[in-house]
Simulated assay, not measured.
Amino acid sequence: MSTDYQRAREELGRRLRELRIDSPGGRLTGTELAARLAWPQSKVSKLENGRQTPTDDDLRAWAEATGQLAVVGELRARLRGFESHIRSWRRQLASGHRPVQDAWNSVVADARILRVWESSIVNGLLQTADYARHIFERHAELQKSPPDAEDAVRARMKRQEWLYRPGKQLKLLMWEGALRAEVCPPEVLAAQLDRLSGVVGMDTVRLGIVPLGAALRLPPSNAFWILDDRLVITEDWHAELWLEDAETIALYRRVWDAFEESAVFGADAQGVIARVRRGLDR
């Protein structure tokens, strides 16, 4: 969990404690508030000490129980402020992958230059429908989210229209291991590799492959997106992080530049893809 996120959560906890202490009906103890809310006292303690993230409903219940409903808007604004940095998959995928893909489509639509590092799978902007379907199905199983692979695939394919709009530029770097990851049947992966080879040379795509044997300034790390040097989005198993402060964006740009130094482009990139493709045939 990021330091900024934890600090913001602790600040929200202090605000909740103030509301409990300054209740118009008289100061409430943590035990008394827990009884009003029918919560375990430990939940009150965790929220006040920044060890648990409240939900919208928790904040409203707290404000109501302390007799201060007027502060609900303020509390929810605080929550949105730090949740915009860490977006848990559990919450995002509560209605399936389609809403997440739609949100991504909106964010990407306004971007002019995307710098992307992919270390484990083919990037969504270049995925075939069959490849994407397998990715969504496996993640839905992992996250125990509603299975909506077909709707999610359609949304992801729609995002790829971005590649054919004037003034757009995808600068994608991929670790060769991502080409080799058999997260789908071999015939699906073969078609995916053919798709990748075909985009080399597109006006709106600059595809670089970092070969397995390349000298590296940094070890291959988790995937991330840099949108117009104004926003970084990266993922972990539990959550997606949206990072907007200039210092962090500059850090990720340095990481991307380091991987770019190890990448091959054009015919050399096609050569790496072709080598992996021949391995599948064997």
Rank of each mutant, 00 (worst) to 15 (best):
P219M: 07
E244T: 14
L196E: 03
L243A: 09
R7W: 13
E74P: 06
V188P: 02
V232H: 00
R15F: 08
P211H: 01
D22Y: 12
E48C: 11
Q101G: 09
Q92M: 12
T53F: 05
Q160P: 05
R180S: 07
W237Q: 13
Y252P: 08
L59D: 03
L280E: 03
R7V: 11
S42V: 06
A250G: 14
P54Y: 03
R180Q: 09
L227F: 14
K43H: 10
R60T: 12
F265Q: 02
L114Y: 01
R80H: 09
E48Q: 06
I249C: 09
L170Q: 03
P219V: 03
L243H: 02
S84D: 15
P220E: 02
G279A: 11
Q52A: 12
A111V: 06
S106W: 15
A181F: 10
R112T: 09
R156I: 07
E240W: 10
R115K: 06
F224D: 04
Q68E: 07
R27K: 04
T204P: 09
N49M: 13
L173F: 02
L33C: 06
I233C: 13
L251H: 15
G124L: 01
E187W: 11
G177E: 09
T248S: 11
R9V: 05
D281R: 15
V255Y: 12
R278H: 14
D102M: 10
E261H: 11
L114S: 02
P54M: 03
F265V: 04
I273Q: 00
M174K: 04
A239D: 06
L142C: 15
G177V: 06
R98M: 08
G73F: 05
S45A: 11
E141C: 14
V122E: 00
R90S: 12
V72T: 02
A246V: 11
H134M: 08
W39G: 04
I273A: 02
L212T: 14
Q6Y: 11
A8F: 11
V200G: 07
L33S: 01
I86F: 12
A65G: 08
E83Q: 08
